[in-house]
Design a protein around this nucleic acid. Structure first.
Lengths: 135, 135
DNA sequence: ACGATGTTGATATTCATTATCGTCAAGGTA
DNA sequence: TACCTTGACGATAATGAATATCAACATCGT
């Protein structure tokens, strides 16, 4: 929250609500889902403010935008030094399963280094069928 | 081309033109780009036919849809047994650089296996700054 | 209190994608 | 050949996510 002030931004109602909601989520949410959930809690946030907040947070590296190919983009919090995951998407039931893999992370970083390309963010999406859908 | 007939589809003009164009491309193109390029060559393809062709090809596993976060989705041919690459996206100049990495592929497949999740397709996008933009 | 500046929600707008529709070409049958 | 069924075609309308606009409102420094 202090980082907002540092970037010359104030924390109006809508923005802080989006931050609070995202902080409680472990995995991704779409802008519409975030807006709906906040409205169900009684606040009158507009969808525009949600997009604005997400854009600002993304610029600060606190939120990562991901596209899982299901029509709308998904947003999830980036916990500095904390868990960093990617997604398995089931093509049959649509379920999204997060996963973490140290070996994959190392491969990606080494690769970017070798190409002299900085890797601010990266995303990995694996599509297929989950174990329950295959049985 | 024969695979079209096998799937109960005929190869009308538009579809084969999309196939021909994609076969010549090594990296990704948006639907609009494909449509524009075909029109510049003199054919009167409609954008709807391009989407239809891409959808059919994707269903057959001959085309992979990718979202690089630049507004529109990108499509690229899948060459069976041939080169299989992912993308580095420069956040500064927007350039898209394809890359191939065997170690990354192995990590992804082992990971999916361990989770009993089939991996029909997967995509990796690395965002950062390319070497020319950093200097 | 007051003005400058940033934020808000509603809404209009843009733009990629999908659905619809009438037309047309290809194949099959007699 | 003539006819008919089926599927593909291009144009365009419709959908829906994301962005831009705008007037009203907060917040902060003075």
């Amino acid at each position: 929250m202090e980082s907002l002030g540092g970037a010359g931004l104030r924390s109006g109602g809508a923005r802080s609500q989006v931050i609070d909601l995202l902080a409680q989520q472990s995995c991704c949410r779409s802008a519409q889902e975030i807006c709906d959930e906040l409205r169900q809690e009684g606040s009158a946030v507009g969808i525009a403010s949600v997009y604005r907040a997400l854009e600002a947070l993304e610029g600060m590296g606190l939120v990562q935008k991901t596209d899982l190919g299901e029509g709308s983009r998904m947003y999830e919090p980036v916990i500095p030094g904390g868990d960093h995951h990617h997604h398995l998407v089931c093509e049959s039931c649509g379920r999204i399963t997060p996963f973490e893999d140290e070996r994959l992370e190392r491969a990606i970083h080494d690769l970017a280094d070798g190409r002299k390309h900085t890797a601010t963010v990266h995303e990995v999406v694996i599509r297929g069928n989950c174990s329950s859908c295959r049985s």
